[in-house]
Design a protein around this nucleic acid. Sequence first.
DNA 1: AGTTAGTTCAAACGTTCGTTTTAATAATAA
DNA 2: TTATTATTAAAACGAACGTTTGAACTAACT
Lengths: 246, 246
Amino acid sequence: MSDIKIIQDTRERILDVAERLFMERGYEGTSMRMITGAAEVNLAAVNYHFGSKEALLREVFRRRLAWLNHERLQALDELEGQANGAPLKPSLVLEAFFGTLLRMGGNESLGGMTFLRLLGRTLTEPAEFIRTFFSGEYAEVIERYKLALIRALPDVPRAEIVWRLHFMLGAMSYAIAGTDVLQVVTGCELGDISDANVDDKVAAQRLADRLMPFLLGGLRAPLPQFLDLSTQQQDASPSSGKRKTA
Amino acid sequence: MSDIKIIQDTRERILDVAERLFMERGYEGTSMRMITGAAEVNLAAVNYHFGSKEALLREVFRRRLAWLNHERLQALDELEGQANGAPLKPSLVLEAFFGTLLRMGGNESLGGMTFLRLLGRTLTEPAEFIRTFFSGEYAEVIERYKLALIRALPDVPRAEIVWRLHFMLGAMSYAIAGTDVLQVVTGCELGDISDANVDDKVAAQRLADRLMPFLLGGLRAPLPQFLDLSTQQQDASPSSGKRKTA
DNA sequence: AGTTAGTTCAAACGTTCGTTTTAATAATAA
DNA sequence: TTATTATTAAAACGAACGTTTGAACTAACT
């Protein structure tokens, strides 16, 4: 049962190892020799099968993002189909977008938490070709969800929704990518996410349970119109009265 | 006025240039020759003044974090002094923690947005020594604020607060670090943060105005006890009744 | 003046990087 | 079988990496 994949062709074995190493050490911090060494293939195999290191990274992402993009679009299609033209509830839009990703993290045959961590980390990689690659891969899905959120929150300005989508992506990426980083920072009380004994399925579910309420709370927070950071006097507690609510 | 700092000693010029390049290209993506070339100093100057590339990165952070840590602790001290032993309002704790950082981003002599971006990016750098360095630099401040939040939200389990602190750090880091990344992803409608024409002061203020309400909303969101991601039926809209609120 | 400590400089060190080459081997088709 | 193609193998390529060396220059003090 655990040795289903003992026999793997070179191509797949390289992709699996590269996925893990890129996650652990970053793109620039992972050399071809590390990859081919861990995958137990010849050094030239990467260039033979993929052409270059850059192309290998792209392929690592493409085989996962193809599934993710399709799944996310389909989830939104279903929601919009059921809604019959009515705006969707924000919670359902978030569930479709982030829930799909987190469910992917729970499925080891789709890369599991390894791929999720890689995705979160790589979004901040500064290399030029990585950025252009991601905007190409992500553009369509993000655009669809952005429009869905704009329809779901008709009273909130578009710009504000984009900001908050930005914040939500950040919270999610760090929550995933930064586990071992912030585990030290925040003390060891998380336990859950960074626990290696727990399998991806459970870890992803626990993360989802905590993350989704946080994101919804942030998305639906009062608008900043009447808040002023430069004074220390603003009151953002829930009991305060006169505030515009998203 | 703009040429106050034309004359700089080698040490400072290296630090300034390294700060910017590490932000733009990452630690591994920035070579000593890039740094010394841009700083117009000899290649050996970095090793002479700092010892190694690693030590240079540490020094780049130390000169900024010294100020930031002091300021954050002092802000919390003041709040707790004014409160006379009573728990602080969550909004004030967040203002002290994130407001201090964002004000730093508005002050060019403290590194401005360049340092903020560098900080956000570097938190996810996978290199081992970077992680251990940060946990050492951050530990005290994070611990203090964690305790303040725990006191500020007595009804919320400690673990949940740590999770949400984690999420907030992520939202902030990405909001800062990922501007040029997600600018493409989210379309060009942000305009504000990634606009090079706007100075750091304005950019930091605009970011703060958007970010603080989002973080507060997330921090104070309903607890996940009764939410279940695996079913698509949960309702997280604000009008729904029976939910425990943080 | 001479001495000393601090700094800058050009040049080279050995290592590792991604990639390429050329030959050997395995697999498939005629 | 032979011919052809696909894959793997070992070795080397030039370039770039972080670091070190030892001499040259500067400035201050005796």
